[in-house]
Design a protein around this nucleic acid. Structure first.
Lengths: 178, 178
DNA sequence: CTGTGCATGTAAATCGTTACATGATTGC
DNA sequence: GCAATCATGTAACGATTTACATGCACAG
């Protein structure tokens, strides 16, 4: 799903400014998708052009003016139509795991450190998600949060139980290099 | 990791043509990364320009000529240097899961179908990975394969146990719409 | 007085896919 | 005869990030 579509979707939860949409990306979809201002603002302009959202300007005291966006009927319909499409396959990108494919080029110490750091990051993710999970209002947010926790927990367990495989590969290459 | 770097890495396993590198992406990294010819061939040309790989042309009987690439010493060093860098955070992109965030706009039937299909896809992934896992020669490949299986298995279990959350959200919105 | 939060935007650069272009061989 | 596999490449297009540009308010 591209930023444009996701912005439209986020606005179905209620009116918001570009700035708030950025936060919604972090809060609601942080696990899956993110977007920078450089993609959000142009996306909002395009959606407005297309009549899928509307915009009203509000001036504030002690704050910069803001543009509050709302979904139009066409926008809501367009988004629902988009949701009917066959979802694309998941994609899991991991620099660390990719690096592990080249364990034959790394020292056993480096491999161990990478795996330790990876586990640590997963644990931090779980902590953040657990914290957030209770605060979330909607069931779907709890669902996604829990999904993240489940996947990260499984990742940690797998690595703890199988890191010897990758560490062996590195050792092997290391001794061969002598 | 970008395609250029990954091509360099794949070549550390042995010489290969662009075509074979494409297959290596599928075989070794299919779970994590993929690349099209449109990115591989230009990457190989650039790496050659930079002197990180070298190229020899081989003509074949009954087959088109091919260009076989090898990593140079500089290339190997450059790649190892790249591996030392702090790996970027993992990113899990899922259209299906993102769609679930908008369950309030979907019929309960649609949500159920999406989840069923998602589980089915995960099961297919697991089957493919299990099959492949035995055939893999290197320990690191087995490790990655196993990782995929572990994550997908955890995903399925989580969804089976928690799909009621998301299905409730959809039902709620559905009844409110009446 | 410095960083953080609020608030919006543009332009350049990066990275990648898709589609096109070409062409032989092998298996069904 | 048609699809698949082998084999290489370019060009158009799309999406997104990064860096830049601006500016006020509040807390430590």
């Amino acid at each position: 799903m591209d930023v444009r579509t996701l912005c439209l979707g986020i606005l179905t939860f209620g009116d918001a400014t570009g700035y708030e949409i950025k936060k919604a990306f972090e809060d609601r979809l942080g696990l899956l998708y993110d977007a920078s201002f450089g993609s959000i603002y142009p996306a909002l302009n395009k959606l407005t052009e297309q009549g899928l959202i509307s915009c009203r300007e509000e001036s504030q005291d002690h704050r910069p003016d803001k543009k509050v966006y709302s979904v139009t009927q066409e926008g809501q319909l367009e988004f629902i139509k988009h949701l009917q499409r066959k979802p694309k396959a998941d994609k899991y990108r991991s620099d660390t795991l990719a690096t592990m494919m080249f364990a034959h080029l790394l020292s056993p110490g480096k491999v161990a450190t990478l795996l330790d750091n990876y586990i640590e990051t997963c644990e931090e993710n779980i902590a953040t998600l657990s914290e957030g999970c209770d605060m979330k209002s909607s069931l779907s947010e709890k669902f996604l949060c829990g999904f993240g926790i489940a996947v990260k927990t499984a990742s940690i367990n797998y690595i703890r139980e199988n890191r010897h495989l990758i560490e062996a590969e590195s050792l092997l290459a290391d001794s061969a290099a002598e």
